[in-house]
Design a protein around this nucleic acid. Structure first.
Lengths: 236, 236
DNA sequence: ATGTGATTTGTACTATCGTACAAAAGATCA
DNA sequence: TGATCTTTTGTACGATAGTACAAATCACAT
């Protein structure tokens, strides 16, 4: 007997479940978690409010499923690109490749959906700003490994920089990345229309260029070696 | 007759209005606007919910008043520091001074309250992530002038870098600044306790050091002059 | 065609939201 | 003290939140 795959296995037909996930992702990423109601999501997906409860049980469950959908593919993509970057011989080139391996998936991929990476990354940015508990948990247990791998890779390219400084700078990188996705219009506004903040390619190149230079900055201890010391010293 | 100043003029006694403002600022900055109810704020301030309505009319009005309280002093402080930074002769030193003039007030001042600057900056970060309308308006009309002034000052120190690149990099700076205030614990975690993400002095020094280097990076057009071109080209 | 399990709909329940408003309490000065 | 203005309290109202659940509908193997 040739058993046709059930709808649960295929998702070949236009699926309500998928529509709800997509709508929720879009709305959460733009307005935050608390500002969006289950009814808003259902309406945007052309579904019934009760349908959300059926598929995801709770609103938190819906958010959790969005994360589950993206985290795997995105980290996979990053691992591949990172592995390739590690094989670059020249240390300078390798640093740029590593940074690019971190940045590119955040903007361009992360799931099967085309261009859904930016949306999901923006979602993560907004959730982290809201201090969302569900997001905090899943982020810490999913992304920290990846982050450590990148920090190690960067440290390999810059052995003379203390790991602490690398952590700070990679934190800045993530912040810059997030903010570029959250308010791209600000770039357009401040450049008086000369730059397009929502152009992913520009954002990537600018971010990679700036970040590589930031990583290459002298370590804090040996900073300003024959210049005036900073007004507020950290710990000397 | 020696007219005693009325309470409206002095605010000398422990003021309920101030307590509500402080509580709201703290709660909004940590949990976002929508996640915090008027009743939460009242309880944290030891006040009655109706008292919030009396002093600020609406929840939006409360947020607006928080912004009004901080924007003036913070921009004033920044203008002073920027003016002083502009007088630095050496271009390299001037760049660092300008960046510092931008960063320091965000962490340390911004109002009469001691150390309230970081809280307000974090609030702005969270509001921008949530796409809050009240915040968006007041930010655009209050901070864009300051941002332009800083961009101009940085451009003066780096005349060979296109203004577009400077805008992008200053945008990254703000993103990094915001993110450092939103999730300082991540720095502590990723550095395995070696760095304290919530130490303002460290954050400032690390941010200034990294950002100055980022600004000094070669312009995008002339980037990678005799190296391989980036995989994803922006517009060439 | 029909029965069966998966899905969608419609609706209802309780909790909490922002806000309004009258009454109580406190402060100020003739 | 008593009159007047400011502030605080207590409570209530309508709207909307998340979720539950029974009925209706759909997909599909037999």
């Amino acid at each position: 007997m040739v058993r046709k795959p059930t709808s649960k296995e295929t998702a070949r037909k236009p699926n309500m479940r998928e529509a709800i996930l997509a709508a929720a992702e879009e709305l959460f990423a733009t307005n935050g978690f608390n500002a969006v109601s289950v009814r808003d999501i259902a309406q945007a997906a052309g579904a019934n409010p009760g349908s959300v409860t059926y598929h995801f049980k709770t609103k938190d469950g819906l958010l959790l499923e969005i994360y589950r959908r993206h985290c795997g593919p995105m980290n996979l993509r990053r691992s591949e690109l990172l592995a390739a970057a590690r094989r670059v011989r020249d240390l300078q080139d390798r640093l740029e490749a590593v940074v690019r391996a971190y940045v590119v998936p955040a903007f361009t991929s992360g799931s099967d959906l085309a261009g859904g990476g930016a949306r999901f990354t923006r979602l993560r940015a907004v959730m982290s700003a809201e201090g969302n508990e569900v997001a905090r948990k899943i982020i810490a247990q999913t992304f920290d490994d990846t982050s450590h791998a990148f920090i190690d890779a960067i440290h390999e390219s810059l052995p003379h920089i203390p790991r602490t400084d690398i952590v700070w700078r990679s934190h800045f990188l993530l912040g810059a990345l997030y903010y570029s996705l959250v308010t791209p219009d600000r770039v357009s506004r401040l450049s008086r229309g000369e730059a397009d903040g929502s152009d992913a390619a520009s954002a990537i190149e600018q971010l990679v260029q700036a970040t590589v230079a930031a990583f290459q900055a002298p370590a804090l201890d040996q900073a300003a070696p024959m210049r005036r010391r900073p007004v507020v010293s950290s710990k000397t």
